[in-house]
Amino acid sequence: MTNGQPKIRIRNLHKSFGSNQVLRGLNLDIGVGESVVVIGGSGSGKSVLLKCILGLVTPEEGSIQIDGKEVVHISERDREELLKQFGMLFQSGALFDSLKVWENVAFGLIQAHGMPRKQAKGVALEMLASVGLDARVAEMAPAELSGGMRKRVGLARAIATSPKVIFFDEPTTGLDPIMGSIIDRLIVHSVKQMQVTALSITHDMASARRIADRVAMLYNGEIIWDGPVAEIDNADNPHVDQFIHGKAEGPIQMQVRKP
């Protein structure tokens, strides 16, 4: 982590859905310009963590600070202002079906930043070019795109507003290894070029190694290990060891029925 005040500071975060307690006192700092990847099994609460930071769900307890300012219970208006400095790549792309590809990419510029449509289209085409998509794709509907193209359009949309923080939710899930590698390279390139703070969640270790400066492992609602990506293979933690090597046996017990 970089020195000084972290960009995002999370303390003692609790969130449950009914009787299912997903986050149980999670603590995490993300430094300015740092790329942190949170790893963890399916259902471990990685997506909930992102949604808590973005204000899509409200935690029951705990603190989330952005640039030192508490953001858990801020007003809708303040949250809208705050989110103007955020970008997000969703697992499914979450592209707007009713809009063309370029309108998806330009959406934040037009709606939230008030940029004229013509000018926003120019920026959208530049963004699409930066992720390897040409002007022909810009006029297509999201339904006409492949999985890899949807991710690229999602990435272009996430970076179009020049955010200071970008979240990546399972950026390579559902992609073949080559396309996964391409997406990771685009993420690293975008993050370094724009000097943004990045928080990614994934269970794809190859992807995590490519895009992370630092890795944090989420298990049982808490961060149980946190360190530079280069040190993950030497982490003296049986949970991390089991997870990164994909071992069936170990302290992490998956809830599966025996045949």
Binding site: L83, F90, S92, A112
Partner: peptide
């Protein structure tokens, strides 16, 4: 409803759009 279940409404929020 489709926008809700495919996270498009969440995407709107992250794009600072109510």
């Amino acid at each position: 409803g489709t926008m809700r279940v495919t996270e498009q409404i969440d995407a709107l929020v992250t794009l600072a759009t109510d």
